[in-house]
C-alpha cells in the first residue's frame, strides 16, 4: 500500500529518517557486524592481536559439551515456560469466559503482573524458595522435603521456569480471553443445543477456532523465554548449579563478560542471531495471515 498524495523534497525526508538510521547503524548494525567479524578470530592471551581462525570458533563451540548442553537447557527451559504460562493462562481465560458478569474484574486482577520485571519476579521467587529463609522451602522442610535449588539441578530449573512463567500468565491470559470472546456465541450455543458437553465443545469448536491465537502465543512465548528471561536466571541461579540453568543468552553474557572469551562469545552471538532471525520470520509470515484482532 502506498500513498497517492506525497510531499516534494529529498533532503527533508532524509533528515527525518536520519536519527533512527544513525542509531540503528551505530548501535545495531555495526555491533552485529563486529560480532560476525570477531567470531572468525581468537584474541591472543594479552588481547594485543587477533588470530584468524575461520570457522574455528564455531567448530569448537559445536563440539563443546557445555555449549551443546546449553542448547538442550534452553530448549527444555523454553518449552516448560511456554507450556506452564500458556496452560495456566488458558485455564483462567476459559473460566473467565464462562462468566456473564465479572470477567472484566478478573482481567484487571490478572493483567498487572505483566508490569513486573523478570528480574524482580526472580527476586520474589528466590525469596520464597531461599534455602535459609524461604517460606515455601521452610514448609517443604517441615513436610520432610529438603529443598535446595542451589545444589539440585532439577529444582533450580523448576524454580526459574515457574518464576519466568508466573509474570507471563497475564499476557497470555489477555490474548486467550480476547480470542475466546471473539468466537461467535451462536456456534457454541448451537453445539450445546445438540447436546455437546463442555469438553466436547471445547475440543471440537473452541480449540480449533482458538488455534491462531495459540500459535501466535507459542511463537511469542518462545521468543520471550529465549531472550527476555536473562533477569530471572541472573537473579535466581546465575546459571548454576553446574550450568544446569545456563540458557544460551546467559552463556553469551557469562563467556563474554565474566569469562572474557571474546571469540567464543561472538560466535555464540552469531548463532543466536540466526535463531532470532528464524523466529522473527516465523512470527511475521504467520502474522500476515492472522485474522483475529
Amino acid at each position: 500500500m502506498e500513498k497517492r498524495v506525497t510531499f516534494k523534497g529529498i533532503w527533508l525526508p532524509l533528515l527525518l529518517v536520519l536519527p533512527q538510521i544513525l542509531i540503528t547503524a551505530v548501535f545495531f548494525f555495526y555491533p552485529a557486524g563486529q560480532a560476525i567479524w570477531q567470531s572468525l578470530f581468537i584474541p591472543d592471551p594479552f588481547g594485543l592481536s587477533m588470530q584468524w581462525v575461520g570457522l574455528g570458533n564455531f567448530e569448537y563451540l559445536l563440539s563443546d559439551r557445555y555449549y551443546r548442553a546449553s542448547f538442550v537447557t534452553t530448549a527444555i527451559f523454553s518449552i516448560l515456560v511456554t507450556l506452564v504460562s500458556m496452560g495456566v493462562a488458558l485455564y483462567l481465560a476459559v473460566l473467565a469466559d464462562r462468566l456473564i458478569k465479572g470477567s472484566g474484574a478478573y482481567r484487571t486482577l490478572l493483567i498487572w503482573p505483566y508490569a513486573v520485571a523478570p528480574a524482580v519476579a526472580g527476586v520474589l521467587w528466590l525469596f520464597m524458595f531461599n534455602t535459609r529463609v524461604g517460606v515455601v522451602s521452610w514448609y517443604l522442610g517441615q513436610l520432610g522435603y529438603d529443598w535446595n535449588h542451589v545444589l539440585n539441578e532439577g529444582e533450580a530449573m523448576g524454580l526459574v521456569v515457574v518464576a519466568s512463567a508466573w509474570g507471563r500468565i497475564s499476557y497470555n491470559f489477555l490474548f486467550f480471553l480476547a480470542g475466546l470472546q471473539a468466537i461467535p456465541r451462536s456456534v457454541i450455543e448451537a453445539a450445546a443445543i445438540d447436546g455437546a458437553r463442555f469438553w466436547t465443545r471445547f475440543r471440537t469448536i473452541v480449540w480449533p477456532l482458538l488455534s491462531p491465537t495459540t500459535f501466535f502465543l507459542l511463537v511469542v512465548n518462545i521468543i520471550y523465554a529465549f531472550f527476555e528471561t536473562f533477569g530471572v536466571i541472573h537473579t535466581i541461579t546465575s546459571g548454576g548449579p553446574q550450568q544446569a540453568t545456563t540458557i544460551l543468552v546467559y552463556k553469551v553474557y557469562s563467556d563474554g563478560f565474566v569469562g572474557q572469551d571474546l571469540g567464543s562469545s561472538a560466535a555464540q552471538s552469531v548463532i543466536l542471531l540466526v535463531v532470532v532471525s528464524i523466529l522473527t520470520i516465523i512470527q511475521f509470515k504467520y502474522i500476515e495471515r492472522r485474522v483475529h484482532y
Binding site: I21, Y30, A32, V252, Y253, L273
Partner: peptide, 22 residues
C-alpha cells in the same frame, strides 16, 4: 528494511560489541 532488521538484533545477541561501542 534496515529499520525492520533491527527486530532481529535484540541487545542480548550483540552485548559485547555494543558494550564496546558505548
Amino acid at each position: 528494511w534496515l529499520i525492520f532488521l533491527t527486530l532481529m538484533l535484540p541487545v542480548e545477541v550483540r552485548i559485547v560489541p555494543t558494550y564496546e561501542v558505548v
